[in-house]
Amino acid sequence: MVSCLLLVSCKEEEKTLPVLGNNKIVDGEEVPHFIPDFAYLSQDSAIITNEFLKKHIYLADCFFTHCPSICPKVTKQMLRIHDEYKSNDKVKLVSFTLDPKRDTPDRLKMYGDNLDIDHDKWYMLHGDKEATYDLCFEFFISAMDDELAPGGINHSGQIVLVDQQNHIRAFADGTDPEAVDDLLKDIKILLKEIEEKSN
């Protein structure tokens, strides 16, 4: 009996994901970090906003198709998540191009085709370059022009998990498959949280 009680009390508490990032001040009030409003053109030249994405949870990264360094590794991990959640419409993926001059929606469409992706699941987004650098920073991803960097842009390769309230709930180094193993577990936890809230 005692051992049984011990087992129950020692049972690990269900993990919930924290809201990440520094609080912001909005209208004089302190609120948890959130992703600001954005509107970008997708590879199908449709406008994708975070209002639209609110019906889903999404994974985000910042990249460019001519990137010879970390992007292919990160893209491979994004593809892994894409394939795992292919039939689950709750999960979307967005990749913001840091090189909108060359990465036109047409080129992004071709890039997506070459990756064999579902264009209604994974949006490759095109918008103003400076605004994208700032937006990526909101996703904890640093990006800057750097002549010495491969491809001319220095940036980090995080994959970020965003919930339906625009909050970042988890992230992983997209160049590290083991870190993405953990992120996949975090996606499951977030999906469970949504399911429980809707019940």
Binding site: P72, K73, T75, K76, L79, Y111, D113, N114, L115, D116
Partner: peptide, 12 residues
């Protein structure tokens, strides 16, 4: 990719 498996039609 480091193991030579490429990435779909992007990298043979």
């Amino acid at each position: 990719m480091a193991d030579g498996t490429g990435l779909k039609k992007i990298y043979p």
